[in-house]
Amino acid sequence: MPQSNIMPGFRPAISFTLVYLALIVLIPLSAMLLKTFQLSLDEYWAILTNARVQASFRVSFGAALIAAVIAGVFGFIIAWSLVRYNFPGKRLFDALIDLPFALPTAVAGIVLATIYEPRGWIGKLVMDSTGIQIAYKPLGITFALIFIGLPFVVRTVEPVLQEFDTAMEEAAASLGATRLQAFVKVILPNILPATITGVALAFARGVGEYGSVIFIAGNMPYISEIVPLLIITKLEQYDYAGATAIGLTMLILSFLLLLLINGLQWWVRRRSGQL
């Protein structure tokens, strides 16, 4: 049902789109599903409940969650400063926010490892002053994932903050609210949904992140081994079934996450009567 019957090219465009989608994305992904179906439920369960696998899920999801929340706070502060304040070089810094999107993950990985390793610039500083080692520990994974997650939060919060009706803040002040009350009761509730969406996006990306993490992680089984690395390890041991079962589980979890994000956005819009 084309919306305009004079517009040409629907059939070839949609045909190519669907064929290409099937060849590159759908058929390969379904291979993973079928491979998992070759396992019995018990076998699948055995793979997932293996202590090392469970540890890796804890590391990946734990580090990604903590990193996403920290990136949420940092990202909010950055977005706020970029939208509300003026300072020299603002546009340059604004453009730089996208660096983690554009910088290949392997480059980010070796750079972060170099900076935060015990002999690195910051790694040494932190090590000497607090005795805390960042790289080759779960903490290192968190640092890498903050780097990866930052632009997700800034780029979701920034436009919402820009379009926020500042008259609402003035209204709050005219009704006797302090600046803090205006922030907590008026600004935050309107910006929070976007912030949470950004955090969820950063989290989803962080769970699957590989390149920027493995150099700084240390990759110790049970301690700092992430799920994607475990999948590769299984593959290298020709344990295709194990790799697939873990991969599919991760895929399903990311899907649920995506669904949750969409649901959240829908709920927020409905709550404020926009639907």
């Binding site: 609402m168 003035e170 209204a171 009761k185 309107n190 404020s272």
Partner: peptide, 10 residues
């Protein structure tokens, strides 16, 4: 009273 009301949307 603001021109575009500035009611709190949430």
């Amino acid at each position: 009273v603001f021109q575009h009301y500035a009611l709190f949307r949430h």
